[in-house]
Amino acid sequence: MRFSTQILFSCKALGCRIFIAGVAYLMIAGCASSYVVLLENQDGTTGKVIIKGQKGEQVLSIANQGAPLDGSAPAAPVSKDKLNKDFSAAIAAQPRLPVSYLLYFRKDVLLTRESEALIPKIIAEAADRQAVDISVIGHTDTMSTIKLNERLSQQRAAKIIALLKKKGINFHAITLESHSERNLLILTPDNTYEPRNRRVEVLIR
């Protein structure tokens, strides 16, 4: 009891700046009521969060470290209990993460065998999601003219939408996009044959 009173006192006195390394996370637990915590991505990597607050700038780059939103204190570890208490509801409400598939074409609008084999996986991925929102995005390589590629890119996407619908894909919204040769996966000069650019991306959200 006396211990926590003391911490409360020092929090007030120091304006949330605790200088004892061993209790650094108490800065967040005890004082900062508005704060951000960096978490690990699903693929195991961790990005960065940059805070520009009224009292300074801070950068978070280590998972499970947090800092007040006003920028008044540097990153410090946040306990599991604290994370659970403040964020379990928000984290539990996280929808299933989107997944994207790349389908490749051996010629014009003809899918490669490997990509054809992906179609059932796409159908299955959409099957048990809610309010499924799908984008089907056509691309080409830089062979031929821009005008013809715009048409081809559109045709590829339309063909995949028709195919997915024919196979009974579960969806709430499905949108066709066509990027033609403006969004190359593999950068090439103009008029270059590149099978990896002849593709349709299917993004399932």
């Binding site: 508005s34 915590v37 699903q42 990005g47 940059i50 520009k52 607050g53 939103l69």
Partner: peptide, 30 residues
Amino acid sequence: IAKLQPDAVTVTTPSGTIGVRGTKFVVKVE
């Protein structure tokens, strides 16, 4: 968006702004 143009992503809060560099995070405002 955060992948292609990281500086285009911001979350504003009453006491500061969060910039996002391809990541997952949680934020609480009281």
